[in-house]
Design a protein around this nucleic acid. Structure first.
Lengths: 351, 351
DNA sequence: GTGAAAGCGCTAACAG
DNA sequence: CTGTTAGCGCTTTCAC
């Protein structure tokens, strides 16, 4: 006795309400132009039968999917070492949910998966894509452009060709860096160092630029390249102390890096902030708040970034090389561009 | 000139290959019972046209979706404070990808979203669900059961009614706790305390049980209830020192809690591990490795948990109260049950 | 083995 | 305003 619980169709609702399928369809989709008595009758039939529209059938005719792909292209485990993506996802999810769109998550493990993702996007399974791929040499953005799907990028992508700029949402990395360094200057520090992030990511480059905006042509030995990890931060800090024992402030490219720097500073007997002031970036709470001493850092509103990305896509601000759809209804002359979210300096004990 | 780039259909491929739609369909779906010359010709046409099957059309007839929902029901921001879910997602994603299934992510913000999720699952948009909902009083698992979708839970759910047990994957929280405490005992500690996690989650309860398994009826003041956060860990540690100044070891319910405990220990001038040994749980790398001193902790293979959940669902081990589908093809007598993954004690400096 | 034909459940003209 | 009529692109009997 396989209780074949096949769900009710439009047909069934129509029969029960004593109207045509078309009328039920109209009611289900907002019920414009249907007279009150019928609307109620249909609504009731829907209720009684527990009718839920079959999305596949609907997509087949509308060519819409009410679904958006989120592509996270980060081979490194590092992505998962801080809550960055989790927060973005939450922001994205909230916005998509508010507009009855589903979130299809596409995680990639290196290049092997790129073709798969490109095929999926080109396959017209979703109305748009939100893409995180922050590495300069990543071929994925290009592939995605060819897929002809409206797309919004998370973080400024690095396209130097002449095509109309991609739509993206980013934090004000450069401005945030400037504020951090300015704060250090305000503290009277004169030997301000910078430990960079992985310079194949625009965020790291922008933060370095912000640092340079303030310090000008300071001693180049005060800039040490690193990679956004605590271990990298340690190595960089050691090298820094080696090169410039008189350093009195460090602006680290992110909180994890700052953590590594703090550790080395402590080991070598420097007091923070008395001897060396330290500032991070991101304001990853469990890291920044629990650091010793608690970390002064530049906060970015990560969840808001996610929300905004989704909003841009749904509003059709996104580049849409190809076919139509509810997502992507922007006017043709809408200049594709980036949206930059402000950052805030959070003062704690380390600077 | 809107280059209506409407993608090629089966029809088009059939025409190009000089065969019928049915034949193309067969080839696309594995190409059994089609003779070699045709297979090649069709494959080539598919290639040339860049044909990608329309999933909506396919689902409409097969009633399969090759999509799985991942439901993360965590109102608290805490979820996002550690990479737990990110790692699970990665494991899930890998497994789903390997079987050509899509991952639909459903994040919920408290009860308001429960109805939405239940409706979505009941709506037959996906072939199954992987559900994370670790709070004892959460109504979501019940709702999902009623949705009639094959489901695998992440973490042992707490159903006390008589229904056949839900399928779930969990870490060996109890065993891991035992190992941690045993290690402390082996170190010669005699006043071993436990700072619990949020006791409305089975993981916290299981870890507490494991602790008790080893210490027996030790001084009950050595157990302090907390909530898995660093702040909670601090408060708990303070209370603990207050109650039992002679404590010489602490087993914390997770790494974040241990971090808070370490901080208080340091503040109050205790040396770790000389005066007080500390063990955490989870082995969240950026936390455990960067702690001062680096944290001895119980590692769980989180990614593997995710992978296993997906595998169970795809293999049809999952409870399936309702309709058929590729997902959920288990034999009726297959005993639904939990799979418990082993944990490992990672020795660092803190104990 | 291969093709022809009948829908899957829904929306979107088009009549009435 | 409401109902009728075509399909959307695909899989799947069923003949050939």
């Amino acid at each position: 006795m396989t209780e074949a619980v096949s769900r009710p169709t439009l047909e069934a609702v129509a029969a029960r309400a004593g109207v045509s399928r078309a009328t039920v369809s109209r009611v289900v989709n907002g019920g414009d132009g249907v007279r009150e008595p019928l609307v109620t009758r249909v609504r009731q039939a829907v209720e009684e039968l527990g009718y839920v529209p079959n999305q596949a059938a609907r997509s087949l005719v509308t060519k819409r999917h009410d679904a958006v792909a989120v592509v996270i292209a980060e081979p490194e485990a590092r992505v998962f070492a801080d809550p960055f993506f989790a927060l973005q996802l939450r922001g994205i999810s909230k916005e998509l949910t508010a507009h009855d769109n589903q979130l299809v998550l596409l995680l990639t493990e290196g290049r092997a998966d790129h073709a798969r993702v490109a095929r999926y996007l080109a396959g017209g399974h979703v109305d748009g894509a939100l893409v995180f791929s922050l590495h300069l040499d990543d071929p994925l953005p290009g592939l995605i452009r060819n897929a002809g799907v409206p797309t919004v990028f998370g973080g400024r992508p690095d396209w130097s060709d002449g095509t109309p700029g991609p739509v993206y949402v980013d934090s004000d990395n450069r401005g945030g860096a400037r504020e951090a360094v300015r704060h250090l200057v305000g503290l009277g520090r004169t030997r301000i160092a910078h430990i960079t992030g992985a310079l194949d990511q625009t965020s790291a480059v922008d933060r370095l630029d912000g640092y340079r905006d303030i310090v000008g042509d300071a001693d180049p030995r005060l800039v040490v390249e690193s990679d956004f990890t605590p271990g990298g931060g340690e190595r960089a800090m050691r090298e820094l102390l080696d090169r410039c024992p008189d350093v009195d402030a460090v602006f680290a490219a992110n909180d994890l890096t700052a953590l590594g720097a703090l550790r080395v500073l402590r080991e070598t007997g420097r007091r923070v902030p008395e001897d060396v002031a330290v500032i991070g970036f991101d304001d990853v709470l469990p890291v920044a708040e629990q650091a010793d001493p608690p970390l002064t850092t530049v906060r970015q509103d990560i969840e808001e970034m996610g929300r905004l990305m989704a909003r841009l896509l749904l509003r059709g601000q996104a580049g849409r090389p190809g076919r139509p759809g509810r997502v992507g209804e922007q006017s043709a002359d809408e200049a594709a561009a980036g949206v930059i979210l402000p950052t805030t300096l959070i003062r704690r004990a380390s600077a």
